[in-house]
Measured scan of single mutants.
Amino acid sequence: MFYPNSPQTSPQLTQIPYGQQYAMMQRQIQQPYHPFATTEPQARLYPYHYQGPIQQEQGGFITQQSTAASPQYVQMRVTPVDQSIMSGYPNQTANGSSSSSFNYNIHPQQQQQQQQQQQQLRHHAMPVGSVPLQDDRYRKQLIVNYLAPDVTSTDLHELFSRFGELDGARIIYDKQTNMSKGYGFVYFCHAEDAKEAVERMSGYEFHGKWLKVGYSTNPLNIVPSNSSPYVHAGSRGAAG
């Protein structure tokens, strides 16, 4: 039997160049792979992502010199942007860049009308829970959420009447099932009393439920100042 490094198959040491006398086997001759043993700084910083320098080929596509990437890492192929796409944008300079302001050559009167329309939209648009300043009635009506099913309009009136005089209180019921929808409205005579009720009743436990109280901004629920107070009856038909 002959071994790869046996004296019968191995040459004389004098015939082997210096430095390879003890590297006779194939696994010894093959050098191990060192990912950080390279002179390129990109490979030292990113050993798993770097795959060699990027070269520009004919046709405008950018390719990489090395083989496919590892399945664990996804390499994105980048193509140059066609400058003709950006030619339609206004205020574009000769080098292809555009300024931040756009001039669509709008007539001054049209621009003024658009600004007025935007101001009107901001004036009428009102986020949930906010209180408008032009109508004091919005500051007097509250919406009470997360009410228990057994709470009546009379219970709601008695709960909030300790903060001040009320114009009314009612629970909203479903017309088909005649069941409470879980929320109601309270109408105060003074805005200061309503503000105190919002601050003190939010998070209050009532009939096993934690109440959420806020201003009601729905104009359909506003009680006119010259109208008669609501009837605080315990029956659902009268309260709904």
Rank of each mutant, 00 (worst) to 15 (best):
P53C: 07
E165P: 10
Q8G: 08
G129K: 11
M76C: 10
N226E: 04
P7H: 08
Y104P: 08
D174H: 05
Y173V: 05
Q8T: 09
S66G: 07
V223E: 03
A233N: 05
L156N: 00
S66L: 06
M201Q: 02
N218F: 00
S97P: 12
N103W: 05
G96H: 08
L13K: 15
I143L: 02
E165R: 15
A169Q: 10
S97D: 06
Y138V: 02
L220G: 02
A233Q: 06
S225W: 09
K212E: 02
A169S: 11
Q118D: 07
P32F: 03
H207F: 15
Y183N: 00
Q31I: 05
V74Q: 13
G208D: 05
S225N: 08
Y230L: 04
Q58C: 13
I54E: 13
Q64D: 08
T67N: 12
P17T: 11
T177Y: 15
Y230H: 06
G208I: 02
A37Q: 13
I222P: 02
R137A: 04
L147A: 02
G88M: 07
V131Y: 15
N221S: 08
Q141H: 00
P17C: 06
Q113E: 07
L156C: 00
T93E: 06
R137F: 03
Y50K: 15
H107V: 05
K175S: 12
Q20R: 13
R44V: 02
Y3G: 10
Q115I: 10
A43Q: 10
H123G: 08
G240S: 06
I54M: 07
G96W: 10
V78S: 14
Q58R: 13
Q64N: 13
R44G: 05
F206P: 00
M76R: 15
S6F: 05
Y173L: 05
D193T: 13
Q8L: 09
L159D: 00
Q31V: 04
Y73P: 15
C189A: 03
Q141G: 00
S10M: 06
S235T: 08
R122N: 06
P80T: 15
H107I: 04
Y215I: 02
K175H: 15
I16L: 10
P80C: 14
G88Y: 04
A69E: 07
N218I: 00
F188D: 02
S228P: 07
P132K: 12
L159V: 12
Q15V: 03
Q113R: 11
Q26A: 13
S87F: 05
F188A: 01
P219W: 00
N221V: 09
Q75D: 11
R200E: 04
G60E: 12
L121V: 09
H207T: 01
Q116A: 08
Q65C: 07
R236I: 07
R236K: 04
P41D: 05
N5S: 09
H157G: 13
T217M: 03
I85H: 12
G164I: 01
Y173A: 06
V198N: 07
Q12H: 12
F102M: 14
A23N: 14
Y22N: 15
G19Q: 11
S228M: 10
I143M: 03
Q111R: 12
P127M: 06
A37S: 08
P35M: 03
Y22V: 08
G208Q: 08
T9W: 03
A239G: 05
Q12S: 11
Q8H: 11
D174G: 02
P80G: 15
V213W: 01
E205S: 06
P90W: 08
T217E: 02
P32C: 05
E165D: 12
N178C: 13
I222F: 07
K195V: 11
Q51R: 13
S101K: 10
Q12E: 07
L147H: 02
P32L: 03
H49N: 11
Q115Y: 05
P7N: 07
I171W: 00
P47T: 05
P108Q: 13
S216L: 00
I172E: 00
L147T: 11
M24Q: 14
Y215E: 00
P53Y: 09
T177A: 05
D135E: 03
P11K: 15
Q115N: 12
K181H: 02
D167G: 02
S101Q: 07
L13D: 08
R77H: 12
S84T: 10
Q31C: 03
G52F: 05
P127F: 09
Q31M: 06
E199T: 13
N145D: 01
R236S: 08
P108F: 09
P11F: 04
F163D: 02
T93S: 09
S161F: 15
Y73E: 12
K140F: 00
G88C: 08
T39V: 08
A233T: 09
N91Q: 05
N178F: 12
N221G: 04
P132Q: 05
L45R: 15
F61Q: 15
S6Q: 11
G240N: 06
H157I: 15
V131R: 12
F61Y: 09
G60Y: 02
Q21E: 03
S99P: 10
N178W: 10
S6K: 15
P53H: 06
Y215M: 02
Q110D: 04
A233E: 10
P127K: 10
T79S: 12
E196G: 14
I222E: 01
A43R: 13
T93N: 12
